[in-house]
Simulated assay, not measured.
Amino acid sequence: MKTLFAVIVLLAAGLTGCQTNPVSGRSQLVLVSEEQAQASSAQAYAQTVNEAQQKGKLSTDAALNARVKRITDRLIVQAGTMYPPSRSWKWSVAVIDEPTLNAWCMPGGKMAIYTGIITKLKLTDDEIAQVMGHEISHALLGHGRERMSRAMATQGGLQIGSILAGRDLTVLAPVADIALTLPNSRESESEADRYGIELAARAGYDPHAAISLWEKMSQASGNGPPQFLSTHPAPTNRIQALNALVPKMMPIYEKARN
């Protein structure tokens, strides 16, 4: 009886947890509320920034910090147009002095970019806008909540499977991650590419920079791992998809520039 009840609860959660994202129009599994996602993100962000500060890893380069803030401020304004609820988010951006080629944006607008991606790739303002536009789009598209929800559903399914099988199946979590999480993560990455290039164009940043950015990333990463085992689309596939978007984005960019 307990097992049957657990199965019913999990199925009900899957059915009632599906929501249509207001930006993309795609149906998503959402078991975590926006408030929960933002609260956990704010806590994680504060911890990350505090740790970076204690280690002397927060950038003290005033010009670089001002540059990043100027770019992200323009993107945030357009994010409010694309997804009006984001106008009330407590946006914040940290520049972390580490060599990693990375940046991120948590639910609620908590952002960071690492100096490595800027300095190693010698990014232009347009290219930084593509990086941060992509990361901000993850937040606007609810990908953080979706990722949390999928993790919850996967873990719940493994726990129920353990009851049915009479043994612990939670050791299969890495397998479940590859089977379930990664394909959707690639979908999320492609989705963030699509809306990130538009967000940057709306803010007056050249869409062609998305191509040059990923050409630089491809050269720096050596094309990365095989696509089927990566949370990111293969660089060649990514560049091809972005190239197809550039002509559609140019009128938006030109209007913003004028």
Rank of each mutant, 00 (worst) to 15 (best):
A165M: 14
I163T: 13
S185H: 06
K122C: 07
L164H: 03
K216N: 01
A139F: 08
G166R: 00
N184G: 15
R202Y: 13
I113Y: 01
D126G: 03
G204Y: 08
I160Y: 10
E215H: 05
I178P: 00
L180T: 07
G224K: 08
E187R: 10
S190F: 15
L164Q: 02
K110E: 07
A173P: 03
I178Y: 15
E187Q: 13
A165V: 07
M148K: 09
A112Q: 11
I128D: 02
R150F: 14
S188P: 00
S230W: 07
F228K: 11
W214I: 10
I239H: 00
M106V: 00
G108L: 07
K110D: 09
S188Q: 15
R145K: 12
G144D: 06
M132N: 03
G161R: 00
G156D: 01
M111I: 11
K120L: 11
L229A: 13
P225C: 09
A165N: 09
E187I: 12
R147P: 10
D168V: 11
A200T: 05
H143G: 10
P225K: 03
A210F: 09
Q155P: 01
R150T: 12
S149P: 11
A210S: 15
Q155W: 13
Q130Y: 13
A139S: 15
G204N: 10
P235T: 07
I211A: 06
N223I: 00
T170N: 15
V175S: 09
I118C: 06
Y114G: 03
H143F: 11
H134N: 01
F228T: 14
I136M: 14
Q155C: 02
E191I: 05
A112H: 08
I239E: 01
D168T: 08
L229N: 10
H232C: 05
G156R: 02
T124H: 01
S137K: 05
I163Q: 14
P183I: 00
E135K: 00
W214Q: 07
